[in-house]
Write a protein that binds this DNA or RNA. Structure first.
Length: 375
RNA sequence: AACGCGAUGAUAUC
């Protein structure tokens, strides 16, 4: 069940087995801690970790790596570091997996010094590096603008007889796209194919997105067709990216046709798809279409998040439906979707435009008291 | 005893 991503069933079974005095072992605990961390229930995961001992289970390196991953995903770097030290202190030797998690986790929050220190420690301990480590380092260093060092890691990889893999190329192509360098992204793409690497949907999506972002949606579309011609099936992210940039370029009909094509190709639209289309139609002043999409996503069993609500509220605002915008803001809270800072920004705008400055000030206070930072 | 558990890449809003 954990492997299938059915964390809820996994957790129920775990509780059922404890109720019947069937005691979980380390592996079972590890699986459940892993899925709790993945679902964001870090507190429960920690409680599990602490109750392991009473069940006579001794946490092992896998237990620690799951928890470290849980902390780092939430950006709790300090707690992760403390846990890592505790693990070493009780004599559990960190393996390559643990270092991957640490280097990736610290790196993605810009703590490159820490990432480098972990890499160093790995080397000192004779723990072999793998491509996951280098891919993480390359990604984080590029993101922080330290491209020269990222390039050094790329070459260091080969020295360790680690060939770059499809992950490495997708990081490089995606980074070029983020920097507004679609032609460079394409050069890397060509080089990887010339060297016998088979680009997958992630690579194509990164490439298509690079051209879309650079204001060349039709070039992106052309690559999308090439992708299909080469037998690589576009996935939901590929469609989402292309729909987004066609829409942003004002080609709303084409964007909607792609949405319809998804159904023909058994590609299930997700929240990204709907929010992208809702935004496109809202900005094209087609409030009916955007509201229809909002209803459709719900009937399809998707649960709107703060992102989707924000687009919906903004569209209503643009259409002059200030009352409805306020109603939706309240609706989201009754369905336990916590508004984020962006939503508060939007709603403050709505209330000011509605002439209700007092309510806007109250919302501002609600926002700051809720621990959200005004931006 | 064996088996089972952990890591890196793409897409949406102000």
């Amino acid at each position: 069940h954990v492997k299938l991503g059915d964390n809820f069933t996994a957790y129920s079974l775990f509780k059922a087995m404890k109720k019947r005095d069937c005691f979980p072992d380390v592996v079972t605990y590890n699986a459940i801690i892993h899925c709790l961390c993945k679902e964001g229930f870090l507190g429960t995961a920690i409680k599990m970790f602490e109750s392991m001992e009473t069940d006579g289970c001794i946490p092992n390196v896998v237990t620690y790596s799951s928890l470290l991953h849980g902390f780092l995903k939430l950006g709790r770097l300090r707690s992760a570091y403390t846990l890592f030290q505790r693990m070493e202190k009780i004599g559990i030797k960190p393996d390559a997996h643990v270092y991957c998690i640490l280097i990736d986790g610290f790196g993605r929050f810009g703590k490159l010094g820490h990432a480098l220190r972990f890499l160093d420690q790995m080397k000192r301990e004779g723990c072999p590096r793998n491509s996951v480590i280098y891919n993480s380092l390359i990604g984080s260093f590029i993101k922080m603008g330290r491209v020269q060092e990222a390039a050094r890691f790329f070459y260091e990889m080969s020295h360790n007889e680690l060939a770059p893999d499809v992950f490495t190329f997708s990081i490089l192509i995606g980074s070029c796209g983020n920097c507004g360098l679609p032609n460079e992204a394409y050069q890397i793409f060509r080089r990887m194919t010339e060297n016998g690497y088979k680009p997958d949907a992630y690579v194509y999506t990164a490439l298509i997105n690079s051209f879309g972002k650079a204001g060349q949606p039709n070039r992106a579309w052309q690559l999308f067709e090439e992708m299909k011609a080469h037998g690589c099936a576009p996935n939901v992210a590929t469609y989402n990216s292309l729909i987004n940039y066609l829409g942003k370029a004002g080609q709303t009909d084409e964007a909607y046709k792609l949405f319809e094509e998804m159904a023909e190709r058994n590609c299930t639209p997700d929240l990204f798809t709907f929010s992208t289309l809702m935004d496109i139609f809202g900005k094209a002043r087609n409030i009916r279409a955007s509201c229809a999409l909002f209803n459709q996503l719900k009937t399809r069993g998707l649960v709107p998040n703060a992102f989707v609500y924000n687009i919906h509220i903004q569209n209503l605002w643009r259409a002059g439906e200030l009352k409805m915008a306020c109603d939706v803001f309240h609706e989201m809270q009754t369905v336990r979707c916590a508004p984020d800072a962006v939503i508060f920004n939007t709603m403050i705008g709505v209330l000011v435009e509605a002439g209700d400055t007092n309510a806007a000030i109250l919302l501002y206070e609600e926002m700051t008291e809720g621990g959200l930072r005004p931006n």
